[in-house]
């Protein structure tokens, strides 16, 4: 019996969550390093409160992007050809596989962003006005990075240099998300509308989702 698209996607998501629960790569490696990076900046530039307040939100998004890329692309080096063959032969729709992996990455990234947000508030004493927008921007960035990282991992997953290539590919392409996230808060700080920036992020996400779903079958074959 053939299972539905969402049953297949859910199976892939559950698999990725289970693998992460066992390996602890995000929880015990990437997350602490992200938090340490946020901690090192005040040590490096000094603890001048106005300076830290001014750069806090920007630093947060830079760290989220840099370390988030590693979370989003981790599957490029955690799935072997033999494992991909087994999944392909279950008859899982490659698009469902893509969506399932994106959902798992998104959940990791949302958790990662939430923890780092708390660390940023604690270390940088950032003003909390405009933070009502934070959940929306976190979702947009998490989704954008997940879509981009999963797509890039699929493109180079069969290459020998996949683990090195994917972050190099994803980091520059995630810049629109970084700009969107930082400018949303800058607009709020200046009392302007941030709609343009969130709209830009939404369009990037939609385009990535379409590209990922449409290319999933071709990429599985490559």
């Amino acid at each position: 019996m053939r299972t539905s698209f969402w049953t297949q996607a859910t199976a892939i998501t559950k698999r990725d969550l289970m693998r992460e629960r066992r390996s602890g790569e995000v929880l015990w490696v990437t997350l602490p390093f992200g938090a340490i990076a946020l901690l090192l900046i005040p040590i490096a530039i000094g603890t001048d409160r106005p300076t830290l307040r001014a750069i806090g939100i920007g630093m947060y998004w830079v760290i989220v992007m840099l370390f988030g890329v590693l979370i989003a692309v981790r599957q490029a080096h955690t799935e072997s050809q033999a494992q991909r063959d087994v999944v392909a032969l279950t008859g899982i729709d490659p698009a469902a596989g893509y969506v399932g992996r994106v959902i798992a990455s998104f959940l990791f990234l949302i958790g990662f962003e939430a923890v780092l947000a708390v660390v940023t508030i604690a270390l940088y004493d950032v003003p909390l006005d405009g933070w009502a927008w934070m959940p929306l921007v976190m979702v947009l960035v998490g989704l954008g990075l997940s879509l981009l990282g999963t797509l890039a991992a699929s493109i180079v997953s069969t290459g020998r240099s996949a683990s090195a290539l994917v972050p190099l590919l994803v980091a520059p392409l995630s810049v629109p998300l970084l700009i969107g996230a930082t400018q949303t808060f800058e607009a709020i700080r200046l009392g302007r509308s941030s709609l343009t920036w969130t709209l830009m992020m939404t369009i990037v996400i939609l385009l990535l989702a379409i590209a990922g779903v449409l290319s999933a079958r071709t990429l599985q074959e490559s």
């Binding site: 019996m1 053939r2 299972t3 049953t7 297949q8 859910t10 199976a11 892939i12 559950k14 698999r15 289970m18 087994v86 999944v87 279950t90 008859g91 899982i92």
Partner: peptide
């Protein structure tokens, strides 16, 4: 878990 993953994908 390995086999259950396959089983869930194939009903």
């Amino acid at each position: 878990e390995n086999l259950s993953f396959i089983a869930s994908a194939m009903a």
